[in-house]
Design a protein around this nucleic acid. Sequence first.
DNA 1: GCCAACGTTGGC
DNA 2: GCCAACGTTGGC
Length: 147
Amino acid sequence: MVKTQYWLIKSEPSVYAYAQLERDGQTEWTGVRNFEARNNLRAMKAGDLCLYYHSNEGKAVVGVAQVLTGAGPDPTAPSEDWASVSVGPVVALNTPVALATLKKTPALKDFPLITRGRLSVAAVTAKHFKLILKLGETMLPNPAQSS
DNA sequence: GCCAACGTTGGC
DNA sequence: GCCAACGTTGGC
């Protein structure tokens, strides 16, 4: 199997919270209108894992989501030029990792939330991904644990 | 192809 | 609710 890649996806909880994803079981990740974020969406493939960040309200990484299907055209987009993927919930973090905590952690100095605050879909290194799970006092359930 | 204006995001 | 950061648009 191909190596799992790690990502960070952001959503305002008032728009689509992680708890909503858990209720729905899966969702189509649409509405991205930034070229770089779109390119990242296109690089996602089924099985990749995403840290789920709540922006504006909450301001914390709250859960892990998994890419279910790779990028297709965004049905909500005005043209063919945009992409979306479908994602499903994996686990909610036992302890949400606040932005303030991320900022205080030297190992996360170049985490995309810190360096690229406004990028809504960003690649995350395996090292950062694991560290955030640790800060969130959370283990991945076995089916999601791939490499 | 540059760059100013504008709109949006998101932390505070 | 303000404002800084920054990406995109559009005029030249």
